[in-house]
Design a protein around this nucleic acid. Structure first.
Length: 937
RNA sequence: GCUUCGGUGGCGGAAUUGGUAGACGCGCUGGAUUCAAAAUCCAGUUCUGUAAAGAGUGUGGGUUCGAUUCCCACCCGAAGUACCA
């Protein structure tokens, strides 16, 4: 009787679904355990083999924890707002809701085939109005909050109004916009309402400000960096420039210190934490103020090296720095403006990463050195970013390589302030190993002393203050898109007003076109119904805007990360209509015990969501500040793309071996036309796309070869492998085992189906252990010592491996186990019982089937995990006498025969080496031939 | 460029704390079974070499009795880089 995975898998998937086998309850005597995956974005390409990697791992862990007696919450949902659905809508005119739902249905079908133990009664979709109602609600909360550094938490904005009324803003320590003025309580009382609103806006956690965006004039829209290739728009190849736009931002920077410190309280991978630390980028230093000659202004520059203050020979500003236009002299205006235009064409990433090209322009203005009063020329250069720090750099060419290169290139002066150190070739960037010189009162001091003395003097002359700087910038929250959460915001006298929360959700309006409007407004501007009537408290048509009760709505939508920043709380109580989740449910589940997802989200989702949860915590909306106790990263599964080469300007394609020296263009082709030897099936390719149908293919040795390259699996690279094919051919259990066997869960690895027959034949061997030709057959005798030993060895190994998320080695252990049982001809019922439970988290269908055949009426997912008993693997203690170099004498006590065999082998091979260990309990003995013995007690 | 991770046979990978490098699987070779094939089973398989032996964990150095493992420099690959998700 052969292993018929098709029937078995279908049977048990139906059974689990019918019995709601994995439904989690919000009250239970059992301890709770919450395992969550990063929910997928349902793309049009369907699920590929990379998606399930993390889901299989978390499913194994969930099933394992259920066996271990936990009330496990293992939910799944969809991050269903996003750009690809909208782009597809633009091309085809189909509503993103429609295509998104289709994609979700396809995902669901594919997920179901893999036998995951999700509690689907808790499914969420961020694009459902029942869900985004609460995203909007939280946005209003952010708007109505400010950050108090004294209490180190966010507080309601009404409390800030009271403070302003009583004592102005002079004594507060709040996170505010840099330019916010200081005022007294009396002054506050005299401000106009709109001025008050503007001031409050500079304290709110959700606020409006002018932000640089990638603007594409031809498409009339803002582009993501991913939509820009070599400075041109991906769609259409149009020019893209940096442009300022009024945008909503979230004041995440207020939480920099807490986000940094909070990393110590969570068990997340250390590299990921390190990435977040570096992203937050805390540095302690001074803000130095430079007067500008002939202007009543000061340039502020942040430095961690105030000790090098006498090495400053010029100042560099970002081209976007607000002073540039004003201070540029008449004769420099032309080239400065030209430079500003040029740099607006570069993306921020290009500006920082291009270190080879040195560019900049002199403004004609001079700053005054705060201590020596020397004149310092003010330059602009695009390696200085307006968004980082103050957008100004005090250049110390002798101590910073970038400043050094800049000075050399433009022949600016370089003052060497490092005594006896040669800077003729490069800057001296170290913090130790020097004494200062050419530095007035700092001469002969080292870094530490020089720094504190310089800071003291700068503070004395009121030209410097101590400052902690963070790289973390506030998060832009507006998107000029259709397919996202609408803001619950209308505008009155150009000031934003929040719609009362009792009228939520504000439902995404219908539009005819998903493109921006002709006058460059975001897509929501296409809606007829997108204005707010404050009398009716409802959305009304735009045409009524001249009615005094009707105000225009915000046209932007929220970014993808809005909905994904708090979804883990919603799973706890997904159908609650009065709250995003009841406090009772939030307290019961409290936090994710295990979160599984990719490290590519390290500085995006995984930082935003931590911030969001802190915010909710500050307002007593959730019971815990850290939402995920433990996190593991699953590595990306890479695809193996295929390229062919077209001779430039021709219709001729060359086999890979013929391209040497030729001017060719590489083209992705679908991997289904390639065989194992990287030969191309030309006939099939010609049928695929018209561009190939009449092309000429130059073979080598009668064959046409392609180039293979490992890269991200993606529909656009034609390298996607769907799990469906594997499920058809080998079944879900084989796929689950194979993906786990492929390598460590956290490592990126190329997909290769070559080895899948290994796991498939393992399952067959497992099945055949208990299936003779006449059918299912097990022995009811007492299990033999040997078989118990094999079983318990496996229980130990597998239990430990699951706890360590080392799933690949546990699959190996199963293979060894079945091979060994096979060689013993073991078909014992008791052994089989335990082995089934042990394997069931990995291969649930086959184990459930065998478990059922063994006469058990209850589902295998409900029974306790086997417990390791060391008695069964204990060897009789063998004493083996040896001596070393004829002098040392020990007697070894060994626990397993394996070690004895190893030592025997060595002693046989190296006659002179022998060990004799007496009265010591020795764990490990390592014998290295002819050299030394190391004994571990 | 910067941040983080990785580099071990023909391939995916294993190797508790610095202690026999290559577990397990794929592939390959030979054999059994078969009219034959598939499937299955058995044996072998890091490289050079008939062998003896030697070399070997990206490259070059260092620490150590001993390094895949620790340190320094470099090369290559992947991910992220603030509006993809």
């Amino acid at each position: 009787m052969s292993y018929n995975f098709k029937d078995i898998e279908l049977k048990w998937q139906k059974y689990w679904s019918k019995n709601q086998a994995f439904k989690a309850v919000n009250n239970s005597k059992l301890p709770k355990y919450y395992v969550m995956d990063m929910f997928p974005y349902p793309s049009g390409a369907g699920l590929h083999v990379g998606h399930p990697l993390g889901y299989i791992a978390s499913d194994i862990y969930s099933r394992f924890k259920r066996h271990k007696g936990y009330n496990v919450l293992h939910p799944q949902g969809y991050d269903s707002f996003g750009l690809p659905a909208e782009q597809y809508a633009i091309q085809t005119g189909r509503h993103p809701r429609e295509t998104t739902n289709e994609n979700i249905n396809r995902y669901r079908e594919q997920l179901d085939r893999l036998g995951f133990s999700f509690d689907w009664s808790r499914e969420i979709r961020t694009s459902n109005k029942e869900y985004y109602k609460w995203t909007q609600w939280m946005f209003i909360k952010l708007y109505n909050s400010w950050y108090d550094f004294k209490k180190d938490k966010s507080r309601p904005i009404d409390e800030l109004k009271n403070i302003f009324q009583n004592s102005g803003n002079i004594d507060i320590k709040a996170c505010e916009t840099e330019s916010t003025e200081k005022f007294s309580s009396i002054e506050w009382g005299n401000f106009s309402e709109s001025k008050k609103e503007n001031i409050l806006l500079s304290y709110r956690l959700a606020y409006l400000s002018e932000i640089d965006v990638n603007w594409c004039p031809n498409l009339g829209t803002v582009l993501a960096n991913d939509e820009i290739i070599d400075g041109l728009s991906d769609r259409g190849g149009y020019e893209v420039i940096r442009k300022k736009m009024t945008q909503w931002s979230i004041r995440i920077s207020a939480y920099s210190e807490r986000l940094l410190n909070g990393l110590n309280n969570i068990d997340w991978p250390e590299p990921l934490k390190e990435m977040q630390r570096n992203w937050i980028g805390k540095s302690e230093g001074s803000l130095v103020k430079f007067d500008i000659q002939d202007f009543e202004k000061q340039i502020e520059a942040f430095t961690t090296r105030a000790d090098t203050i006498f090495g400053v020979t010029f100042i560099t500003l970002a081209p976007e720095h607000p002073f540039v236009k004003e201070i540029t002299s008449q004769e420099n205006k032309g080239q400065v403006n030209e430079y500003i235009i040029q740099s607006s064409k570069k993306t921020e990433r290009d500006r920082i990463s291009d270190v080879k090209t040195i560019s900049g322009v002199f403004t004609g203005a001079y700053a005054i050195h705060p201590l020596s009063n020397e004149k310092l020329p003010i330059w602009i250069s695009d390696y200085v970013l307006a968004g980082y720090g103050t957008g100004a750099v005090m250049a110390v060419p002798c101590g910073d390589q970038r400043d050094y290169n800049f000075a050399k290139f433009f022949k600016l002066p370089i003052t060497n302030i490092f005594k006896d150190i040669d800077i003729s070739k490069e800057a001296f960037q170290s913090k130790d190993g020097f004494k200062l010189t050419n530095s007035d009162f700092l001469n002969d001091l080292d870094f530490k002393k020089g720094l504190s003395k310089a800071i003291k003097e700068l503070e004395n002359v009121k030209k410097g203050i101590h400052k902690i700087n963070y790289k973390l910038r506030d998060a832009v929250f507006s998107r000029q898109r259709y397919w996202g959460e609408p803001f619950p915001v209308y505008y009155k006298n150009n000031l934003p007003v929040m719609i009362n929360e009792k009228y939520l959700p504000i439902i995404l309006p219908e539009v005819d076109k998903y493109l921006p409007t002709e006058d460059g407004k975001p897509p929501l501007g296409n809606s007829k119904c997108w204005a707010w009537d404050i009398e009716k408290n409802s959305i009304v048509e735009n045409t009524l805007i001249d009615n005094k009760n009707v105000y225009p709505m915000e046209l932007n939508t929220m970014p993808g990360w809005a909905g994904s920043s708090w979804y883990f709380n919603r799973y706890m109580d997904p159908n609650n209509i009065d709250n995003f989740a009841s406090m009772e449910a939030l307290k019961y589940w409290s936090e994710i015990d295990l979160y599984v997802g990719g490290s590519e989200h390290a500085t995006g989702h995984l930082l935003y969501s931590r911030f969001w949860q802190y915010f909710l915590y500050d307002h007593n909306l959730v019971p815990v500040p850290d939402y995920a106790k433990k996190l593991i990263n699953q590595g990306m599964i890479l695809g193996n793309s295929a390229y062919i080469f077209r001779l430039n300007g021709s219709d001729t394609y060359l086999s890979y071996g013929l391209i040497k020296g030729e001017n060719v263009q590489s083209i992705h082709i679908d991997i289904k036309f390639i065989n194992q030897n990287n030969e191309l099936n030309i006939e099939e390719l010609k049928k695929w796309q018209p561009q190939f149908s009449k092309a000429d293919f130059k073979n080598e040795n009668e064959k046409f070869f392609v180039k293979r390259e490992v890269e991200k699996m993606s529909k656009s690279k034609f390298n996607v492998v769907s799990p469906d094919e594997i499920c058809d051919k080998y079944g879900a259990d084989t796929l689950r085992l194979y993906e786990m066997f492929l390598g460590p869960i956290d490592q990126a690895k190329p997909w290769n189906t070559a080895g899948i027959t290994g796991t498939f034949s393992f399952l067959n061997k497992f099945w055949n252990l208990f299936h003779q030709t006449q059918g299912f057959f097990v022995s009811d005798e007492e299990p033999t010592k040997d078989s118990l030993k094999i079983l318990h060895k496996t229980i130990k190994k597998v239990s430990e491996d699951i706890e360590n998320f080392s799933f690949n080695t546990s699959v190996s252990a199963f293979m060894i186990c079945v091979n060994e049982l096979n060689s013993l001809n073991c078909n014992n019922r008791l052994i089989l019982n335990d082995l089934c439970i042990l394997l069931s988290p990995f291969a649930p269908h086959i184990c459930e089937e065998i478990w059922n055949k063994l006469g058990n009426s209850v589902s295998i997912s409900k029974v306790p995990y086997p417990i390791f008993n060391p008695e069964f693997i204990k060897e009789s203690v063998i004493e083996y006498p040896v001596s070393f170099n004829g002098k040392l004498r020990f007697r070894i006590k060994l626990e397993t025969s394996l070690e004895v065999d190893r030592i025997k082998k060595y002693i046989l091979n190296h006659e002179k080496t022998s060990l004799y260990l007496q009265g010591k309990d020795i764990k490990k003995v390592i014998i290295v031939p002819k050299k030394i013995i190391n004994i571990v007690f």
